[in-house]
């Protein structure tokens, strides 16, 4: 459905995308995962024909993102990162307006948005500016689906949304597959990767890896240990000073350490003991997407 080949884009001297390439299959729920400033928005805006790439090619279906922008705008749905519907129009007026400019009406594809729109329908005469964050997202999603696009591009739809709404939102994205709609969604939250069919990890404008969430975790090749102690900052510094690990980083309540060779936990606690650190929990740990992401980072 999407083919991206060697796309590069710079803003003045800053390279936002460096030779990014990957493919998204038809009907997939595909995640573009990376921290803020990784190049996610730039990539989505190029696909949505709002930005021109400096070099490289990208296709949506058989349409080129530069030449066939009008076709793409007709057949792709887009939900930008910032709420960009008319705040001074009501829920229903927004939906009707976007339906009409696509040459359709609310009824034609109502079945598609029904599970989402039903939740905000009680407020259909309320102005969009008066909606809560979660409801705004649902309205924006409804508006981007009202013309039954073949592909849906979502730029960080769950950023700044509460945990319950986020979960609901992902459930709704899951149902798009039943309607044969391909979804490309970007997010800075690593834990959301598990909800996608496949993901691309992106950092500093480079695509690090493209695979299913399970395979990404399987690709983790180092040995991982999680360590917990009283004095966190001192412990991190102590662990970094030992020459046992390739990477040491905080991870929730633990500290994750990776090494190329297996290390006995006893060895670690001995060495820490020499530095005056005791009462430390050391366990071998199972890697997650974030561990693989950090492993891939230079």
């Amino acid at each position: 459905m999407i083919q991206i080949e060697q796309i590069s884009k710079s803003y003045n001297a800053h390279a936002a995308l460096k030779q990014a390439s990957f493919k998204v299959d038809r009907g997939e729920l595909f995640g573009l995962i990376g921290p803020d400033g990784a190049g996610k928005t730039t990539l989505i805006r190029i696909l949505m024909t709002l930005l021109l790439p400096d070099s490289g090619k990208a296709h949506i279906g058989q349409w080129d993102v530069v030449k066939d922008y009008r076709k793409i705008r007709q057949h792709v749905g887009y939900m930008p990162g910032n709420f960009s519907l008319y705040r001074d129009l009501t829920v229903e007026e927004n939906l009707r307006f976007f339906a009409s400019v696509f040459g359709t009406n609310i009824k034609t594809h109502y079945h598609l948005i029904k599970p989402i729109y039903e939740q905000i329908e009680p407020f259909k005469n309320r102005r969009a500016e008066k909606l809560s964050g979660g409801m705004k997202q649902k309205l924006a999603l409804s508006c981007s689906l009202i013309h039954r696009p073949e592909l849906l591009l979502l730029d960080e739809p769950t950023t700044g949304v509460d945990a319950v709404s986020r979960q609901e939102f992902w459930q709704m994205l899951g149902t798009m597959k039943e309607h044969g709609i391909t979804v490309l969604v970007s997010t800075p939250y690593m834990e959301e990767a598990d909800l996608c069919d496949r993901v691309a990890l992106i950092q500093n404008g480079e695509i690090l890896e493209v695979a299913s969430p399970k395979n990404i975790v399987d690709h983790f090749s180092s040995h991982l240990y999680r360590i917990k102690g009283k004095e966190r900052l001192g412990l991190i510094n102590a662990l970094r000073s030992l020459s046992l690990f390739t990477k040491v980083y905080p991870f929730g309540e633990y500290i994750h350490c990776t090494s190329d060779e297996a290390v006995e936990p006893v060895v670690i606690s001995q060495q820490l003991g020499q530095l005056g650190m005791d009462e430390i929990v050391i366990e071998a740990a199972l890697p997650g997407i974030e561990d693989r992401f950090i492993e891939l980072m230079a």
Partner: peptide
């Protein structure tokens, strides 16, 4: 200013 032009630009308008 409101960003609505972004949504307009991705329609066939």
């Amino acid at each position: 200013e409101m960003g609505t032009i972004e949504q307009i630009n991705v329609t066939p308008i």
